[in-house]
Amino acid sequence: MALIAMAAGFILILIGFYGALTNRNILRMIVAFTVADTGVNIVMVTVGYLRDRTAPILDNAVPAADAAARIIDPVPQALVLTAIVIGMGVTALMLAFAYRFYEKKRTLDITKCTELKW
């Protein structure tokens, strides 16, 4: 199961990079970046997965005495939790830049942005 999930994550990263490199509409590039972000999160959670173990939350089903033998490592999950929130912030920042670009140029096509070319 972990192998299938890791393959899904890598395929999502590849699809996202392909879309971000081949589209010219800036909003489409940001959507493709979101897809690649989700793929990276899936790969990071899959790295921390162990077979036949359960979620690292202590309740009646998992008593604290034998918790170390039955739960998986919670550190990659904490990292991914931070990465999701920061990814939302980065997406909001890119959308703000896209809106600023539209106000300046009245278009969303990034090939019209030619001030730094000579």
Partner: peptide
């Protein structure tokens, strides 16, 4: 998929932020 990989907290955050808030922003 996060829930299947035994990470319910990540699944909750992804459902709330990645799906709800990002779609609304877009």
């Amino acid at each position: 998929l996060f829930l299947l990989l035994a990470a319910p907290d990540v699944a909750m955050t992804e459902a709330a932020i990645g799906s709800g808030l990002t779609t609304f922003l877009f």
